[in-house]
Design a protein around this nucleic acid. Sequence first.
DNA 1: ATCACCTGTGGGAGCGCTCCCACAGTACCT
DNA 2: AGGTACTGTGGGAGCGCTCCCACAGGTGAT
Lengths: 351, 351
Amino acid sequence: MATHGARGRSGGRPTLEEVAARAGVGRGTVSRVINGSPRVSDATRAAVEAAVAELGYVPNTAARALAANRTDAIALVVPEPETRFFAEPYFSDMLKGVGAELSETEMQLLLIFAGSDRERRRLAQYLAAHRVDGVLLVSVHADDPLPDLLAQLEIPAVISGPRSAAETLTSVDSDNYGGARSAVEHLLSRGRTRIAHITGRLDVYGAQRRVDGYREALRDAGYEADERLIEAGDFTEEGGAQAMKVLLERCPDLDAVFAASDVTAAGARQVLREAGRRIPEDVALVGYDDSAIARHMDPPLTSVRQPIEDMGRRMLDLLLAEIADRRPAVSRGLERPQEVLATELVVRTSS
Amino acid sequence: MATHGARGRSGGRPTLEEVAARAGVGRGTVSRVINGSPRVSDATRAAVEAAVAELGYVPNTAARALAANRTDAIALVVPEPETRFFAEPYFSDMLKGVGAELSETEMQLLLIFAGSDRERRRLAQYLAAHRVDGVLLVSVHADDPLPDLLAQLEIPAVISGPRSAAETLTSVDSDNYGGARSAVEHLLSRGRTRIAHITGRLDVYGAQRRVDGYREALRDAGYEADERLIEAGDFTEEGGAQAMKVLLERCPDLDAVFAASDVTAAGARQVLREAGRRIPEDVALVGYDDSAIARHMDPPLTSVRQPIEDMGRRMLDLLLAEIADRRPAVSRGLERPQEVLATELVVRTSS
DNA sequence: ATCACCTGTGGGAGCGCTCCCACAGTACCT
DNA sequence: AGGTACTGTGGGAGCGCTCCCACAGGTGAT
């Protein structure tokens, strides 16, 4: 029979010990029930669960973390200023995937920006203090020391894209090479031959792979590479606009643009319009990410869809597995998995 | 003399005890130095600091939280789905302000979405477990039980806008009434007389206050209220478009629209354009928030600027004060402050 | 000289858990 | 009958801190 509102004699929150007393069992047994150990009889478990409910018992996380040497928290680290995080749908989609998957567990997510030097120092402190069980690292640049710091501290980590072909950490990525190929092949099939490419930040490996895909698709179709059709962007709208200006100046005869992101394409579109080029009649435009702005753009933008939410989910799965593995057998020299998810070209009216 | 890389005999991280041994002092003294107590001689402090540096000591937060009964973490709770969080600049600006202020301290920020029932249950658990020292609550609806839960658990909290005129929790808000007045007075000064209003979610107190400001500005200018010129929106773009359609249908003679948010205004603009109304020639448009989209809109949108980042900063200040106060003297019946920050009308070409 | 009262310091107790060893009880073999 | 091997349970030890009491040694009043 439940005693309503039975808590709070001493004013504080109930402890394991109090639950044990109430249920007429030992501390260890309550702990076993709380943690779902199978080595508890059904009768005892029921009694403990009743006591927990009556007292409104909630475990003290600090005590648990101290005793068990874990935190039940993971960090999503974004090595960018907050501004970019909010400006680019990539990050929010990623967060959505991770969040969805995480809500299945008891783990807690910390969102950490490491854009400035100061923030990075804080993060290093934070990691040194082992305040998280694992780290998800998104959008890592080639020369970022963070992954190595993580490895050195032996903190489980998964990154959203390898830093190079020789990545040692676990990573989940989409098929940047294949995605770029499909975009270019699509433009070729539409009869375009002077196809320009506005790249992403080239210190991001994925951006390089997109350039590779662009180049090889053209080469395989029998076109000699024209390096003047390639201009570096940085995934931002301003960068896209800037690059588009340069390209129009340098190659006025271009008839298509493959941009390394949708926001880049948005910047390019603006410049194309100002230059009086019609989309897609004069210049076909293809973006990357298939984010919300691709659908809302005028005209709607053909784009390479990456399953970003799925990537987030998968990253979390791999991280949790790594955390769980670590616990018993200290990191056996298993090869780290490098997962690659397929992309899909979504054709709209801009091409 | 510093011994380089002096850590890690036992493989684990150094503890207070080890630092104490190294510095030749007691545990308590090291604790005092770490926590900045003044009751330590300069010589001792220097010795301890040297030992800390040599060993690379970082305090164990879990142990500290357990012993001191605090967590050094606060939560920013957003009672909305993540989607809205990312869609509305209001939230990200708020986060920016809070983040900036927080980086001055040792506190850690948790971003918690409580849009779905499931998320809310998780949050309740979380709060019951006292895993944060305080809570910042943004965008609270009138009937939200969260503030009362917080009060019941005696967790310090600050909300971003009062739930009603009789709010009991500490709050920081901008002057919604005055902001709305200034928008309407501006439109009146431009010679507009048939001024419509697309409201925000009316279960948000601030949205009601904007309606009040709108009504009273008109009344004070000698216009009788025409309720048909008011249509409810919900702060979203779709809501704005929907409301605009209704208004155009009902009052084709309107010559100005005051929208309760910039995104609402964006939705309205779309509908106005489709209906062939020119902005500002036929219909003047004023938004609220002065967010990035106001500047980028075509034509640039006149908008009421709220100092959202400042609000975030101020909320954090008040919360930290409340947390600090609570510690020694258990909540003396101090009246809770209700801060109101001024708004400013930013005139652009849409009006 | 005695007392009061500072400052600076050491270290015991205890925060609420998890881990693990010990052990009672039962079951099934020899 | 004794051995072996389970299952379920209780409770000690200890995680790394903070809090606070005790106390040494100095300083200045009486």
